[in-house]
Write a protein that binds this DNA or RNA. Structure first.
Length: 329
DNA sequence: ATACCAACAATGGTCGAA
DNA sequence: TTCGACCATTGTTGGTAT
């Protein structure tokens, strides 16, 4: 477990973050999302004042949490229902530091009390304590600050900014619309570059069940709406119709899609084989590929081709490196 | 190991750039 | 005139991040 960093809670939700910008973190084998992490960043970036004065950094909280973690009962905490928390909170309310006249114990005493409890109870109380502690409002910090903070860390800055600024309703449509609002020229450029290096011989991806359905739906739609020519309208209507279909109604399309997928995998197998043998030969490549184009169908149906004698890992690696370089842009 | 995200499959009219 | 991006949709895939 290397994620131990910082824990706090908010209502019934539980947040945990590593100290170094994890976008997804693991809690007892469960993965939680980036949104959670953002909130954690928000708090951890501020240094947390102890209720009794002094400042507690994320690493120190991490140590405390690490102890709690050792009890291996966090999963229980995570799944406990709210009433349990309410009861717990009420039970140790008098301990709450900062509540005038109610703080019976010094931090040291409190710690001793905690240690005297069973591990499970300790975890519960510890969790509640940190939750209460860290959930105070932070009105001065906005999502845009998170972007700045993350940008200062360098890696992953762009991603976080996107996430942070994403509208509450983050459906696919919104995402794509947001993307469309980006700098179009640069995007176009990037796409152009990518397409330029695309291999025209590479088999096209098979249609998903929805696309199989769309093939039929377009015909229907055309019949019913001969005047509507834009693809957007068909796409939208098709999407709506698809959502209204039952699983049983979708089944035949899914079956077709599965079939197409199987074909695609076959073709890809042949294609990859060809790529490998192409990389093998260097100068002979053009000659070979010419003959192989003719044999393509044969190859796709019956795999008789000889496997390459030696693996040309270097060449493959070079290709990968090139792609990586471009991706860096 | 897992989450997350962008790209990509098809379609045809429209528009801008070269 | 030609070429390519864009519009909209859902599901899948491959790559990347952690």
């Amino acid at each position: 477990m290397n994620l131990i960093g910082f824990l706090f809670g908010e209502g019934s939700e539980v947040f945990l973050s590593g100290s170094n910008g994890l976008s997804a973190v693991q809690i007892c084998g469960r993965w939680i999302g980036k949104r959670i992490h953002l909130t954690a960043v928000r708090v951890s970036a501020l240094s947390l004042p102890y209720p009794d004065g002094g400042v507690c950094g994320a690493s120190e909280i991490g140590s405390l949490w690490h102890f709690l973690w050792l009890s291996e009962s966090f999963h229980k905490i995570y799944t406990l229902s709210l009433p349990v928390w309410d009861n717990l909170a009420a039970a140790i309310e008098p301990w709450k530091p900062g509540v005038a006249g109610k703080s019976k114990f010094s931090p040291l005493t409190r710690a001793a009390l905690w240690f005297s409890l069973s591990f499970d109870s300790l975890s519960l109380i510890g969790f509640w304590y940190f939750s209460w502690w860290n959930c105070r409002p932070i009105p001065s910090l906005k999502d845009t600050d998170l972007v700045t903070m993350r940008a200062a860390k360098g890696k992953g800055a762009a991603k976080i900014s996107k996430e942070a600024l994403k509208p509450v309703d983050d459906g696919r449509v919104g995402k794509r619309k947001a993307a469309a609002a980006d700098d179009k020229s640069s995007k176009r450029k990037a796409r152009k570059e990518k397409r330029a290096k695309k291999d025209p011989n590479k088999p096209k991806r098979p249609p998903s069940a929805f696309f199989v359905f769309l093939e039929e739906f377009r015909k229907e739609f055309k019949k019913e709406n001969p005047n509507v020519k834009g693809v957007a309208a068909v796409g939208k209507a098709g999407g709506d119709k698809w959502k209204s279909l039952s699983d049983a109604e979708k089944a035949p399309y899914e079956a077709k899609a599965a079939k197409r997928k199987a074909e695609y995998e076959k073709q890809m197998k042949a294609y990859n084989k060809k790529q490998e043998s192409g990389a093998d030969d260097g100068d002979e490549e053009s000659e070979r590929s010419r003959s192989e184009v003719n044999d393509e169908e044969d190859e796709a149906s019956g795999e008789e081709g000889q496997p390459p004698e030696e693996e040309e890992e270097e060449e493959v690696e070079d290709e990968e490196e090139e792609e990586d370089d471009e991706d860096d842009d």
